[in-house]
Write a protein that binds this DNA or RNA. Structure first.
Lengths: 253, 253
DNA sequence: ATACTAATTCCGTTATTTGGAATAAACCGA
DNA sequence: TCGGTTTATTCCAAATAACGGAATTAGTAT
Protein backbone atom coordinates (compact mmCIF):
# COMPACT_ATOMS: atom_id res chain seq x y z
CA UNK A 1 0.00 0.00 0.00
CA UNK A 2 0.98 3.61 -0.03
CA UNK A 3 0.23 7.11 1.22
CA UNK A 4 -1.09 5.35 4.19
CA UNK A 5 1.41 5.52 7.00
CA UNK A 6 0.98 9.18 7.83
CA UNK A 7 -2.78 9.09 7.51
CA UNK A 8 -3.04 6.10 9.80
CA UNK A 9 -0.86 7.82 12.34
CA UNK A 10 -2.82 11.05 12.15
CA UNK A 11 -6.04 9.19 12.75
CA UNK A 12 -4.64 7.17 15.61
CA UNK A 13 -3.37 10.35 17.23
CA UNK A 14 -6.70 12.13 16.85
CA UNK A 15 -8.65 9.21 18.29
CA UNK A 16 -6.27 8.85 21.17
CA UNK A 17 -6.43 12.52 22.01
CA UNK A 18 -10.21 12.55 21.63
CA UNK A 19 -10.40 9.70 24.11
CA UNK A 20 -8.56 11.83 26.64
CA UNK A 21 -10.53 15.01 26.10
CA UNK A 22 -10.74 17.46 27.64
CA UNK A 23 -7.86 17.14 30.07
CA UNK A 24 -5.58 16.45 27.12
CA UNK A 25 -2.44 14.39 26.76
CA UNK A 26 1.20 15.00 27.45
CA UNK A 27 3.69 14.60 24.68
CA UNK A 28 5.59 11.69 26.17
CA UNK A 29 2.47 9.65 26.86
CA UNK A 30 1.24 10.30 23.36
CA UNK A 31 4.50 9.17 21.81
CA UNK A 32 4.48 6.03 23.92
CA UNK A 33 0.84 5.16 23.25
CA UNK A 34 1.24 5.81 19.55
CA UNK A 35 4.35 3.68 19.58
CA UNK A 36 6.36 6.32 17.78
CA UNK A 37 9.86 7.55 18.43
CA UNK A 38 9.80 10.92 20.16
CA UNK A 39 11.13 12.92 17.21
CA UNK A 40 8.61 11.33 14.88
CA UNK A 41 5.73 11.92 17.21
CA UNK A 42 6.88 15.42 17.84
CA UNK A 43 6.96 16.42 14.19
CA UNK A 44 3.57 14.83 13.61
CA UNK A 45 1.91 16.58 16.54
CA UNK A 46 3.53 19.88 15.73
CA UNK A 47 2.27 19.68 12.19
CA UNK A 48 -1.24 18.85 13.36
CA UNK A 49 -1.16 21.68 15.86
CA UNK A 50 0.04 24.18 13.29
CA UNK A 51 -2.95 23.19 11.17
CA UNK A 52 -5.31 23.74 14.12
CA UNK A 53 -6.25 20.09 14.20
CA UNK A 54 -4.75 20.03 17.67
CA UNK A 55 -4.48 22.73 20.27
CA UNK A 56 -1.76 22.77 22.83
CA UNK A 57 -2.41 24.38 26.15
CA UNK A 58 0.15 27.10 26.67
CA UNK A 59 0.68 26.24 30.30
CA UNK A 60 0.10 22.53 30.76
CA UNK A 61 1.59 21.78 27.30
CA UNK A 62 -1.06 19.16 26.83
CA UNK A 63 -2.51 18.33 23.45
CA UNK A 64 -6.23 18.48 22.81
CA UNK A 65 -8.39 18.43 19.73
CA UNK A 66 -8.21 21.77 17.96
CA UNK A 67 -10.76 24.18 16.57
CA UNK A 68 -10.50 22.82 13.06
CA UNK A 69 -11.82 19.49 14.28
CA UNK A 70 -14.78 21.32 15.75
CA UNK A 71 -15.43 23.17 12.50
CA UNK A 72 -15.12 20.09 10.35
CA UNK A 73 -17.40 18.37 12.81
CA UNK A 74 -20.06 21.02 12.34
CA UNK A 75 -19.78 20.61 8.58
CA UNK A 76 -20.30 16.89 8.85
CA UNK A 77 -23.02 17.37 11.43
CA UNK A 78 -25.22 18.70 8.65
CA UNK A 79 -24.95 15.19 7.31
CA UNK A 80 -24.66 12.87 10.29
CA UNK A 81 -26.66 14.75 12.89
CA UNK A 82 -29.93 14.19 11.06
CA UNK A 83 -28.84 10.59 10.46
CA UNK A 84 -28.29 10.13 14.15
CA UNK A 85 -31.75 11.35 14.93
CA UNK A 86 -33.38 9.55 12.04
CA UNK A 87 -31.75 6.26 12.94
CA UNK A 88 -33.06 6.38 16.47
CA UNK A 89 -36.47 7.70 15.59
CA UNK A 90 -38.17 4.46 14.44
CA UNK A 91 -37.11 2.48 17.46
CA UNK A 92 -38.15 5.26 19.72
CA UNK A 93 -41.38 5.97 17.91
CA UNK A 94 -42.35 2.33 18.21
CA UNK A 95 -41.74 2.42 21.92
CA UNK A 96 -43.66 5.64 22.27
CA UNK A 97 -46.59 4.30 20.32
CA UNK A 98 -46.78 0.95 22.08
CA UNK A 99 -46.17 2.01 25.63
CA UNK A 100 -46.49 5.77 25.69
CA UNK A 101 -42.97 6.14 27.01
CA UNK A 102 -40.98 9.16 25.96
CA UNK A 103 -37.58 8.69 24.39
CA UNK A 104 -34.67 11.14 24.29
CA UNK A 105 -31.40 11.54 22.47
CA UNK A 106 -28.62 13.43 24.21
CA UNK A 107 -25.18 14.62 23.24
CA UNK A 108 -22.51 15.89 25.54
CA UNK A 109 -21.53 19.54 25.65
CA UNK A 110 -18.79 20.24 28.14
CA UNK A 111 -20.03 19.13 31.52
CA UNK A 112 -23.64 19.10 30.36
CA UNK A 113 -25.98 17.02 28.32
CA UNK A 114 -27.95 18.65 25.55
CA UNK A 115 -31.20 17.07 24.46
CA UNK A 116 -31.13 16.93 20.66
CA UNK A 117 -34.23 14.88 20.03
CA UNK A 118 -37.36 13.84 21.81
CA UNK A 119 -40.04 11.40 20.76
CA UNK A 120 -43.15 11.94 22.84
CA UNK A 121 -45.21 9.10 24.09
CA UNK A 122 -48.99 9.23 24.03
CA UNK A 123 -49.22 8.44 27.70
CA UNK A 124 -50.43 11.37 29.77
CA UNK A 125 -47.37 11.45 32.03
CA UNK A 126 -44.82 13.36 30.09
CA UNK A 127 -41.62 14.90 31.26
CA UNK A 128 -41.55 18.47 30.09
CA UNK A 129 -38.47 18.82 32.27
CA UNK A 130 -36.25 17.97 29.35
CA UNK A 131 -37.15 20.19 26.41
CA UNK A 132 -35.20 20.14 23.16
CA UNK A 133 -31.90 21.91 23.43
CA UNK A 134 -31.99 22.03 27.19
CA UNK A 135 -28.83 21.52 29.18
CA UNK A 136 -28.44 19.59 32.40
CA UNK A 137 -25.25 18.58 34.20
CA UNK A 138 -24.00 15.18 33.13
CA UNK A 139 -25.45 12.56 35.41
CA UNK A 140 -28.76 14.04 36.47
CA UNK A 141 -30.70 12.39 33.67
CA UNK A 142 -30.28 8.83 32.45
CA UNK A 143 -28.58 9.98 29.24
CA UNK A 144 -26.09 12.04 31.17
CA UNK A 145 -25.48 9.18 33.56
CA UNK A 146 -24.85 6.84 30.64
CA UNK A 147 -22.38 9.30 29.13
CA UNK A 148 -20.69 10.04 32.43
CA UNK A 149 -20.25 6.40 33.39
CA UNK A 150 -18.73 5.65 29.98
CA UNK A 151 -16.01 8.27 30.39
CA UNK A 152 -12.49 7.41 31.51
CA UNK A 153 -12.12 7.37 35.28
CA UNK A 154 -10.12 10.61 35.56
CA UNK A 155 -12.47 12.50 33.29
CA UNK A 156 -15.47 11.21 35.18
CA UNK A 157 -13.98 12.49 38.41
CA UNK A 158 -13.17 15.84 36.87
CA UNK A 159 -16.75 16.23 35.67
CA UNK A 160 -18.15 15.15 39.03
CA UNK A 161 -16.07 17.81 40.75
CA UNK A 162 -17.02 20.43 38.18
CA UNK A 163 -20.75 19.89 38.38
CA UNK A 164 -20.90 19.40 42.16
CA UNK A 165 -21.98 22.99 42.90
CA UNK A 166 -24.81 22.77 40.41
CA UNK A 167 -26.25 19.51 41.65
CA UNK A 168 -28.25 21.16 44.41
CA UNK A 169 -30.52 22.65 41.79
CA UNK A 170 -31.17 19.26 40.32
CA UNK A 171 -32.98 17.39 43.01
CA UNK A 172 -30.20 17.88 45.54
CA UNK A 173 -28.23 15.00 44.22
CA UNK A 174 -24.97 14.43 46.12
CA UNK A 175 -21.69 13.79 44.34
CA UNK A 176 -21.07 10.58 46.22
CA UNK A 177 -24.54 9.36 45.38
CA UNK A 178 -23.93 10.15 41.71
CA UNK A 179 -20.58 8.40 41.79
CA UNK A 180 -22.31 5.33 43.16
CA UNK A 181 -24.88 5.45 40.36
CA UNK A 182 -22.01 5.64 37.88
CA UNK A 183 -20.48 2.51 39.36
CA UNK A 184 -23.82 0.72 39.16
CA UNK A 185 -24.27 1.84 35.56
CA UNK A 186 -20.79 0.61 34.69
CA UNK A 187 -21.37 -2.84 36.10
CA UNK A 188 -24.94 -3.10 34.80
CA UNK A 189 -23.97 -1.89 31.32
CA UNK A 190 -26.76 0.65 31.29
CA UNK A 191 -27.84 3.68 33.26
CA UNK A 192 -31.00 3.55 35.35
CA UNK A 193 -31.98 6.56 37.36
CA UNK A 194 -35.01 8.09 38.98
CA UNK A 195 -34.71 11.65 37.79
CA UNK A 196 -34.37 13.78 40.90
CA UNK A 197 -35.17 16.95 39.08
CA UNK A 198 -38.40 15.46 37.78
CA UNK A 199 -39.85 13.49 40.66
CA UNK A 200 -41.77 10.42 39.65
CA UNK A 201 -39.92 9.98 36.38
CA UNK A 202 -37.46 7.18 35.84
CA UNK A 203 -35.38 6.45 32.75
CA UNK A 204 -33.04 3.89 31.23
CA UNK A 205 -30.12 5.13 29.17
CA UNK A 206 -27.41 3.69 26.99
CA UNK A 207 -24.28 5.39 25.66
CA UNK A 208 -23.57 5.36 21.94
CA UNK A 209 -19.94 5.00 20.99
CA UNK A 210 -18.40 5.16 17.54
CA UNK A 211 -14.90 4.36 16.40
CA UNK A 212 -13.37 6.32 19.23
CA UNK A 213 -13.81 4.99 22.72
CA UNK A 214 -15.42 8.25 23.75
CA UNK A 215 -19.19 8.06 23.98
CA UNK A 216 -20.72 10.48 21.51
CA UNK A 217 -24.36 10.39 22.47
CA UNK A 218 -26.87 8.62 24.68
CA UNK A 219 -30.35 7.30 24.04
CA UNK A 220 -32.91 6.96 26.80
CA UNK A 221 -36.48 5.85 27.44
CA UNK A 222 -38.35 7.51 30.28
CA UNK A 223 -41.53 6.50 32.03
CA UNK A 224 -43.10 6.97 35.42
CA UNK A 225 -41.18 5.57 38.32
CA UNK A 226 -44.00 3.24 39.23
CA UNK A 227 -44.02 1.69 35.78
CA UNK A 228 -40.25 1.25 35.58
CA UNK A 229 -40.20 -2.28 36.88
CA UNK A 230 -37.41 -4.78 36.28
CA UNK A 231 -39.61 -6.42 33.68
CA UNK A 232 -40.05 -3.15 31.85
CA UNK A 233 -36.35 -2.42 31.95
CA UNK A 234 -35.76 -5.80 30.32
CA UNK A 235 -38.28 -4.78 27.66
CA UNK A 236 -36.70 -1.43 26.98
CA UNK A 237 -33.06 -2.46 26.96
CA UNK A 238 -33.06 -4.49 23.73
CA UNK A 239 -34.65 -1.56 21.93
CA UNK A 240 -31.97 0.79 23.15
CA UNK A 241 -29.27 -1.70 22.30
CA UNK A 242 -30.70 -2.05 18.81
CA UNK A 243 -30.77 1.67 18.29
CA UNK A 244 -27.24 2.10 19.63
CA UNK A 245 -25.93 -0.73 17.48
CA UNK A 246 -27.71 0.59 14.44
CA UNK A 247 -26.13 3.97 14.90
CA UNK A 248 -22.69 2.48 15.47
CA UNK A 249 -23.19 0.40 12.34
CA UNK A 250 -24.26 3.33 10.21
CA UNK A 251 -21.43 5.45 11.43
CA UNK A 252 -18.96 2.66 10.84
CA UNK A 253 -19.88 2.46 7.16
CA UNK B 1 10.60 20.94 8.32
CA UNK B 2 9.41 17.38 8.42
CA UNK B 3 6.43 15.13 8.89
CA UNK B 4 4.54 18.00 7.51
CA UNK B 5 3.75 17.27 3.92
CA UNK B 6 1.18 14.56 4.53
CA UNK B 7 -0.48 16.39 7.36
CA UNK B 8 -0.78 19.56 5.33
CA UNK B 9 -2.29 17.59 2.47
CA UNK B 10 -4.73 15.79 4.73
CA UNK B 11 -5.92 19.07 6.18
CA UNK B 12 -6.23 20.73 2.80
CA UNK B 13 -8.25 17.82 1.55
CA UNK B 14 -10.58 17.82 4.54
CA UNK B 15 -11.18 21.57 4.30
CA UNK B 16 -11.79 21.38 0.60
CA UNK B 17 -14.26 18.54 0.97
CA UNK B 18 -15.96 20.26 3.89
CA UNK B 19 -16.43 23.33 1.72
CA UNK B 20 -18.29 21.20 -0.80
CA UNK B 21 -20.49 19.34 1.67
CA UNK B 22 -22.88 17.72 1.34
CA UNK B 23 -22.94 17.17 -2.41
CA UNK B 24 -19.36 15.94 -2.20
CA UNK B 25 -16.46 16.09 -4.62
CA UNK B 26 -15.35 13.99 -7.53
CA UNK B 27 -11.91 12.50 -7.50
CA UNK B 28 -10.53 14.40 -10.47
CA UNK B 29 -11.68 17.77 -9.20
CA UNK B 30 -10.17 17.02 -5.82
CA UNK B 31 -6.83 16.06 -7.33
CA UNK B 32 -6.81 19.19 -9.45
CA UNK B 33 -7.80 21.54 -6.61
CA UNK B 34 -5.31 19.95 -4.26
CA UNK B 35 -2.67 20.27 -6.95
CA UNK B 36 -1.66 16.64 -6.56
CA UNK B 37 -0.88 14.06 -9.20
CA UNK B 38 -3.77 11.63 -9.57
CA UNK B 39 -1.97 8.63 -8.09
CA UNK B 40 -0.88 10.66 -5.09
CA UNK B 41 -4.31 12.09 -4.50
CA UNK B 42 -5.83 8.70 -4.96
CA UNK B 43 -3.73 7.02 -2.32
CA UNK B 44 -4.31 9.86 0.11
CA UNK B 45 -8.07 9.83 -0.32
CA UNK B 46 -8.28 6.07 -0.18
CA UNK B 47 -6.35 6.05 3.06
CA UNK B 48 -8.58 8.74 4.54
CA UNK B 49 -11.68 6.87 3.44
CA UNK B 50 -10.46 3.58 4.89
CA UNK B 51 -10.03 5.40 8.19
CA UNK B 52 -13.60 6.75 7.99
CA UNK B 53 -12.35 10.29 7.80
CA UNK B 54 -13.99 10.41 4.40
CA UNK B 55 -17.00 8.59 3.06
CA UNK B 56 -17.40 7.81 -0.58
CA UNK B 57 -20.85 7.54 -2.01
CA UNK B 58 -21.19 4.10 -3.56
CA UNK B 59 -23.04 5.38 -6.61
CA UNK B 60 -21.86 8.91 -7.30
CA UNK B 61 -18.31 8.04 -6.16
CA UNK B 62 -18.09 11.43 -4.57
CA UNK B 63 -16.07 12.06 -1.45
CA UNK B 64 -17.62 13.59 1.62
CA UNK B 65 -16.54 13.98 5.21
CA UNK B 66 -16.83 10.68 7.01
CA UNK B 67 -18.35 9.56 10.28
CA UNK B 68 -15.09 9.79 12.16
CA UNK B 69 -15.00 13.53 11.54
CA UNK B 70 -18.45 13.76 13.04
CA UNK B 71 -17.41 11.77 16.09
CA UNK B 72 -14.23 13.73 16.64
CA UNK B 73 -16.31 16.86 16.19
CA UNK B 74 -18.62 15.80 18.97
CA UNK B 75 -15.63 15.17 21.23
CA UNK B 76 -14.28 18.63 20.56
CA UNK B 77 -17.74 20.14 20.87
CA UNK B 78 -17.53 19.48 24.60
CA UNK B 79 -14.74 22.00 24.49
CA UNK B 80 -15.60 24.47 21.77
CA UNK B 81 -19.38 24.46 21.87
CA UNK B 82 -19.46 26.12 25.27
CA UNK B 83 -16.73 28.48 24.06
CA UNK B 84 -18.85 29.43 21.09
CA UNK B 85 -21.76 30.27 23.31
CA UNK B 86 -19.67 31.94 25.96
CA UNK B 87 -17.88 34.11 23.45
CA UNK B 88 -21.10 35.44 22.02
CA UNK B 89 -22.85 35.82 25.32
CA UNK B 90 -21.32 39.10 26.55
CA UNK B 91 -21.95 40.96 23.33
CA UNK B 92 -25.45 39.63 23.16
CA UNK B 93 -26.17 40.22 26.83
CA UNK B 94 -25.10 43.81 26.47
CA UNK B 95 -27.46 44.28 23.58
CA UNK B 96 -30.26 42.60 25.45
CA UNK B 97 -29.71 44.75 28.51
CA UNK B 98 -29.39 48.04 26.68
CA UNK B 99 -32.13 47.64 24.10
CA UNK B 100 -34.18 44.66 25.17
CA UNK B 101 -33.52 42.92 21.90
CA UNK B 102 -33.20 39.16 21.90
CA UNK B 103 -30.13 37.51 20.44
CA UNK B 104 -29.76 34.01 19.03
CA UNK B 105 -27.01 31.65 18.04
CA UNK B 106 -27.74 29.08 15.36
CA UNK B 107 -25.87 26.18 13.86
CA UNK B 108 -26.75 24.30 10.73
CA UNK B 109 -28.10 20.79 10.84
CA UNK B 110 -28.81 19.41 7.40
CA UNK B 111 -31.33 21.70 5.75
CA UNK B 112 -32.32 23.23 9.07
CA UNK B 113 -31.06 25.69 11.59
CA UNK B 114 -30.89 24.67 15.22
CA UNK B 115 -31.00 27.34 17.86
CA UNK B 116 -28.21 26.58 20.31
CA UNK B 117 -28.34 29.67 22.45
CA UNK B 118 -30.69 32.50 23.22
CA UNK B 119 -30.14 35.64 25.24
CA UNK B 120 -33.46 37.19 26.17
CA UNK B 121 -34.03 40.88 26.12
CA UNK B 122 -36.00 42.60 28.83
CA UNK B 123 -38.31 44.17 26.33
CA UNK B 124 -41.84 42.79 26.49
CA UNK B 125 -41.92 41.71 22.84
CA UNK B 126 -40.16 38.42 22.81
CA UNK B 127 -40.07 35.79 20.16
CA UNK B 128 -40.96 32.49 21.76
CA UNK B 129 -41.13 31.17 18.20
CA UNK B 130 -37.48 30.16 18.37
CA UNK B 131 -36.95 28.08 21.49
CA UNK B 132 -33.60 26.45 22.28
CA UNK B 133 -32.96 23.38 20.18
CA UNK B 134 -35.76 24.17 17.77
CA UNK B 135 -35.31 23.48 14.10
CA UNK B 136 -36.45 25.65 11.23
CA UNK B 137 -35.62 25.33 7.54
CA UNK B 138 -32.55 27.35 6.55
CA UNK B 139 -33.67 30.77 5.43
CA UNK B 140 -36.81 31.40 7.41
CA UNK B 141 -35.01 33.12 10.25
CA UNK B 142 -32.20 35.62 9.94
CA UNK B 143 -29.61 33.11 11.15
CA UNK B 144 -30.72 30.58 8.58
CA UNK B 145 -30.70 33.22 5.89
CA UNK B 146 -27.18 34.23 6.86
CA UNK B 147 -26.04 30.61 6.70
CA UNK B 148 -27.88 29.91 3.49
CA UNK B 149 -26.56 32.95 1.67
CA UNK B 150 -23.01 32.07 2.71
CA UNK B 151 -23.19 28.63 1.13
CA UNK B 152 -21.76 27.86 -2.29
CA UNK B 153 -24.22 28.57 -5.10
CA UNK B 154 -25.00 24.94 -5.92
CA UNK B 155 -25.49 23.98 -2.32
CA UNK B 156 -27.75 26.96 -1.76
CA UNK B 157 -29.91 25.86 -4.66
CA UNK B 158 -30.03 22.31 -3.44
CA UNK B 159 -31.18 23.47 -0.02
CA UNK B 160 -33.76 25.81 -1.51
CA UNK B 161 -35.22 22.94 -3.50
CA UNK B 162 -35.15 20.62 -0.50
CA UNK B 163 -36.93 22.94 1.86
CA UNK B 164 -39.46 24.28 -0.67
CA UNK B 165 -42.26 21.96 0.45
CA UNK B 166 -41.85 22.99 4.06
CA UNK B 167 -41.86 26.72 3.48
CA UNK B 168 -45.64 26.92 3.41
CA UNK B 169 -45.67 26.20 7.11
CA UNK B 170 -43.29 29.03 7.77
CA UNK B 171 -45.26 32.11 6.81
CA UNK B 172 -45.87 30.88 3.30
CA UNK B 173 -42.49 32.05 2.11
CA UNK B 174 -41.90 31.33 -1.60
CA UNK B 175 -38.67 29.88 -2.89
CA UNK B 176 -38.12 32.70 -5.35
CA UNK B 177 -38.69 35.24 -2.63
CA UNK B 178 -36.16 33.45 -0.42
CA UNK B 179 -33.67 33.29 -3.25
CA UNK B 180 -34.03 37.04 -3.67
CA UNK B 181 -33.40 37.58 0.06
CA UNK B 182 -30.27 35.47 -0.26
CA UNK B 183 -29.03 37.68 -3.07
CA UNK B 184 -29.72 40.77 -1.00
CA UNK B 185 -27.94 39.25 1.98
CA UNK B 186 -24.94 38.39 -0.17
CA UNK B 187 -24.57 41.89 -1.52
CA UNK B 188 -25.33 43.58 1.81
CA UNK B 189 -22.97 41.30 3.72
CA UNK B 190 -25.58 40.52 6.33
CA UNK B 191 -29.03 38.95 6.48
CA UNK B 192 -32.05 41.09 7.28
CA UNK B 193 -35.45 39.48 7.31
CA UNK B 194 -38.88 40.05 8.73
CA UNK B 195 -39.62 36.64 10.16
CA UNK B 196 -42.69 35.38 8.35
CA UNK B 197 -43.34 32.68 10.89
CA UNK B 198 -43.34 35.23 13.69
CA UNK B 199 -45.16 38.25 12.30
CA UNK B 200 -43.94 41.57 13.58
CA UNK B 201 -40.47 40.30 14.38
CA UNK B 202 -37.45 41.31 12.35
CA UNK B 203 -33.86 40.22 12.76
CA UNK B 204 -30.35 40.88 11.54
CA UNK B 205 -27.99 37.93 11.15
CA UNK B 206 -24.35 37.33 10.37
CA UNK B 207 -22.65 34.06 9.45
CA UNK B 208 -19.63 32.89 11.43
CA UNK B 209 -16.91 31.20 9.45
CA UNK B 210 -13.77 29.54 10.71
CA UNK B 211 -10.78 28.25 8.83
CA UNK B 212 -12.95 26.48 6.31
CA UNK B 213 -15.01 28.59 3.96
CA UNK B 214 -18.14 26.87 5.15
CA UNK B 215 -20.16 28.93 7.61
CA UNK B 216 -20.37 27.09 10.90
CA UNK B 217 -22.85 29.17 12.81
CA UNK B 218 -24.84 32.38 12.68
CA UNK B 219 -25.52 35.06 15.24
CA UNK B 220 -28.63 37.25 15.13
CA UNK B 221 -30.36 40.07 16.95
CA UNK B 222 -34.14 40.23 16.77
CA UNK B 223 -36.50 43.03 17.60
CA UNK B 224 -39.94 44.19 16.57
CA UNK B 225 -40.33 45.06 12.93
CA UNK B 226 -41.28 48.61 13.79
CA UNK B 227 -38.09 49.18 15.74
CA UNK B 228 -35.82 47.65 13.12
CA UNK B 229 -34.98 50.90 11.39
CA UNK B 230 -31.92 51.47 9.24
CA UNK B 231 -30.40 53.36 12.15
CA UNK B 232 -30.91 50.39 14.44
CA UNK B 233 -29.46 47.98 11.93
CA UNK B 234 -26.36 50.18 11.81
CA UNK B 235 -26.26 49.96 15.60
CA UNK B 236 -26.61 46.20 15.72
CA UNK B 237 -24.22 45.27 12.94
CA UNK B 238 -20.96 46.24 14.65
CA UNK B 239 -21.93 44.15 17.65
CA UNK B 240 -22.57 41.14 15.48
CA UNK B 241 -19.35 41.73 13.58
CA UNK B 242 -17.46 41.93 16.85
CA UNK B 243 -18.95 38.71 18.10
CA UNK B 244 -18.30 36.93 14.82
CA UNK B 245 -14.71 38.19 14.68
CA UNK B 246 -14.12 37.26 18.28
CA UNK B 247 -15.28 33.73 17.64
CA UNK B 248 -13.20 33.45 14.49
CA UNK B 249 -10.22 34.74 16.44
CA UNK B 250 -10.71 32.31 19.31
CA UNK B 251 -11.14 29.42 16.98
CA UNK B 252 -8.09 30.45 14.99
CA UNK B 253 -5.83 30.21 18.01
C1' DA C 1 -21.11 -0.18 -30.29
C1' DT C 2 -17.48 3.54 -29.90
C1' DA C 3 -15.05 7.23 -28.20
C1' DC C 4 -14.28 9.69 -24.58
C1' DT C 5 -13.34 10.88 -19.75
C1' DA C 6 -12.57 9.44 -15.17
C1' DA C 7 -10.49 6.34 -11.89
C1' DT C 8 -7.11 3.04 -10.59
C1' DT C 9 -2.78 0.23 -10.47
C1' DC C 10 2.27 -0.57 -11.48
C1' DC C 11 6.95 0.08 -10.32
C1' DG C 12 11.64 2.31 -10.72
C1' DT C 13 13.14 6.58 -8.74
C1' DT C 14 13.57 10.17 -5.35
C1' DA C 15 12.21 13.21 -1.94
C1' DT C 16 10.21 12.80 2.55
C1' DT C 17 10.37 10.86 6.68
C1' DT C 18 12.95 8.50 10.10
C1' DG C 19 15.35 7.89 14.65
C1' DG C 20 19.79 7.74 17.36
C1' DA C 21 22.06 11.01 19.70
C1' DA C 22 22.72 15.54 21.48
C1' DT C 23 20.52 19.68 23.35
C1' DA C 24 17.42 22.51 25.56
C1' DA C 25 13.71 23.47 28.38
C1' DA C 26 10.59 22.63 32.24
C1' DC C 27 9.84 20.73 36.63
C1' DC C 28 10.74 19.43 41.33
C1' DG C 29 12.48 18.88 45.84
C1' DA C 30 15.54 20.97 48.95
C1' DT D 1 17.77 29.87 44.31
C1' DC D 2 19.87 25.90 42.90
C1' DG D 3 21.24 20.98 41.24
C1' DG D 4 19.01 16.72 39.60
C1' DT D 5 15.58 14.68 36.94
C1' DT D 6 12.16 14.33 33.73
C1' DT D 7 10.19 16.05 29.56
C1' DA D 8 10.41 18.25 25.18
C1' DT D 9 12.85 19.67 21.04
C1' DT D 10 16.37 19.93 17.27
C1' DC D 11 20.04 17.86 14.07
C1' DC D 12 21.31 15.27 10.23
C1' DA D 13 22.95 10.97 7.75
C1' DA D 14 20.41 6.84 6.50
C1' DA D 15 16.45 4.41 5.17
C1' DT D 16 12.18 3.82 3.35
C1' DA D 17 7.66 5.43 2.38
C1' DA D 18 5.77 8.22 -0.98
C1' DC D 19 6.00 9.92 -5.62
C1' DG D 20 4.44 10.28 -10.44
C1' DG D 21 4.92 8.97 -15.51
C1' DA D 22 2.90 5.72 -18.02
C1' DA D 23 -0.21 2.01 -18.76
C1' DT D 24 -4.72 -0.06 -17.55
C1' DT D 25 -9.30 -0.46 -16.39
C1' DA D 26 -13.85 1.25 -15.39
C1' DG D 27 -17.47 4.29 -16.30
C1' DT D 28 -20.20 7.34 -19.22
C1' DA D 29 -21.91 9.79 -23.05
C1' DT D 30 -22.76 9.67 -28.07
Amino acid sequence: MAGVQSVARVVRALKLIAAHAPEGMRFTDLARELDLEPPTAHRLLKALASEQMLARDAHSRRYNLGPLVFELGLSSASRFGPTLRATCAPVRAERAASTGDTSFLFVRSGDDTVCVSRVEGTYPIQTPMVPLGSRQPLGVNAGGLALLSALPEVEMNRVLAAIAPRLAKHGDLKVEELRRYCGEAQSAGFALIANRAAPGVSAVGLPITGATTTPIAAITVATTEARMTDARVKEILPLLTNAADEIARRLAQ
